[in-house]
């Protein structure tokens, strides 16, 4: 029996800025993980990934990352993905900077 599918989000880097972005239900790209579309069905996740891969003029290297539902929307599971939602830990750069301004 195959293992239960873990929910996913489609994430990539923005072509122009390189920033981590997430595919939303409305077919846009958001810098916020919480606005990502949480994909609970494996076939659906593959289709959404294909859709992302069809936008090379907008994003680079889309992939599926594990996520789980949270109070304000999907939350990352792995620490690497958690870092991508914030920015580096040595300076308040990246998304932390935007959050402060």
């Amino acid at each position: 029996m195959s293992r239960a599918f873990k929910p996913k989000v489609v994430t990539a880097n923005d072509l122009l800025s390189g920033e981590a972005v997430y595919q939303t239900e409305a077919d846009t790209w958001s810098p916020l993980h919480s606005q990502a579309e949480l994909l609970t069905d494996e076939a659906d996740a593959q289709l959404r990934l294909l859709h992302a891969q069809g936008q090379p003029d907008r994003v680079v290297g889309p992939y599926l990352a594990d996520a789980e539902p949270g109070a304000d929307g999907p939350e990352p599971v792995h620490f690497r993905e958690a870092f991508r939602t914030r920015g580096p830990s040595n300076y308040a750069h990246g998304k932390q900077e935007t959050a402060q301004s």
Binding site: N13, S17, G18, G61, R80, R84, P88, H93, G94
Partner: peptide, 9 residues
């Protein structure tokens, strides 16, 4: 010399 990293180029 241009890489794409976690948060930016």
């Amino acid at each position: 010399g241009l890489y794409l990293q976690l948060h930016a180029y």
